[in-house]
Each structure stands twice: as structure tokens, then as C-alpha cells.
Design a protein around this nucleic acid. Structure first.
Length: 100
DNA sequence: CCTATGACCATAG
DNA sequence: CCTATGGCCATAG
């Protein structure tokens, strides 16, 4: 199956709907977009975003609350602005996870 | 066609 | 906490 524009848009939509001050995991985003088990698609899609995007990609972390992003510093800074503190690239997922 | 590579994940030891 | 394993799947070479 090819990565259709529809699928990309559904994933972007989910990311866009993550509230400020909350985070979601890659797997969570994939599942909410109707593609369970496809966390890697999410990570790869986010890696292709233009630098000027308004999509809140910084609110997506891995299943352990860890930041595994080449742009970790940017992500950590943005999360801090929303009141989410990190420690060694890790945050308290249990407290900050978005539960719709 | 085959292998390697990820902004991943769950489970087991 | 850490490593190992198996699964995931588009993309690149």
C-alpha cells in the first residue's frame, strides 16, 4: 500500500488536534488516524515536514515518553513553553499524555 | 528481488 | 535500568 495523501492528511489532522500542553505517542497518533501498528509511518511523516510548518509535531513522543528526534533541542524548548518539563530527553508521559 | 534503515512498539529476561 | 527479539512498512540503493 502506498502512502496515500488521504492517509497523510488523517495523520496530520490527528497531530494538529493534540491540545497545547499535552502530548501523544507515535503509536497513539497512528491508531487514532485509523492505522494501528504504523507508528513508523508517523515518525517518518513528521521527519518530512517543512521547517516552517505550524503542525505541533513537538507534542509527539515515543511510547516511553522519550524524545527521539534529531531536533530534540527545539522540541524540548517548545514543550517547556507549554509547561512540560523534560529530564534527559524524557517527560512524565503518565501525567502529560493526551487522553481524548 | 534483496538488504538496510528508521522521530516506533511490546514483551521477555 | 539495559539488551535482545520480533513485528511493523515505506524508501533508498
Amino acid at each position: 500500500m502506498t502512502l496515500s495523501l488521504d492517509l497523510k492528511q488523517s495523520i496530520w489532522q490527528v497531530v494538529a488536534s493534540i491540545p497545547e500542553g499535552r502530548v501523544a505517542t507515535y503509536g497513539q497518533v497512528a491508531e487514532m488516524a485509523g492505522q494501528p501498528g504504523r507508528a513508523r509511518w508517523v515518525g517518518r511523516l513528521l521527519s518530512e515536514l517543512p521547517e516552517a510548518t505550524t503542525l505541533p509535531w513537538h507534542r509527539v513522543v515515543n511510547a516511553r515518553g522519550n524524545i527521539t528526534n534529531p531536533q530534540a533541542l527545539t522540541q524540548i524548548r517548545r514543550l517547556a513553553l507549554e509547561g512540560i518539563e523534560t529530564n534527559n530527553q524524557r517527560l512524565a508521559l503518565k501525567q502529560h499524555r493526551w487522553r481524548p
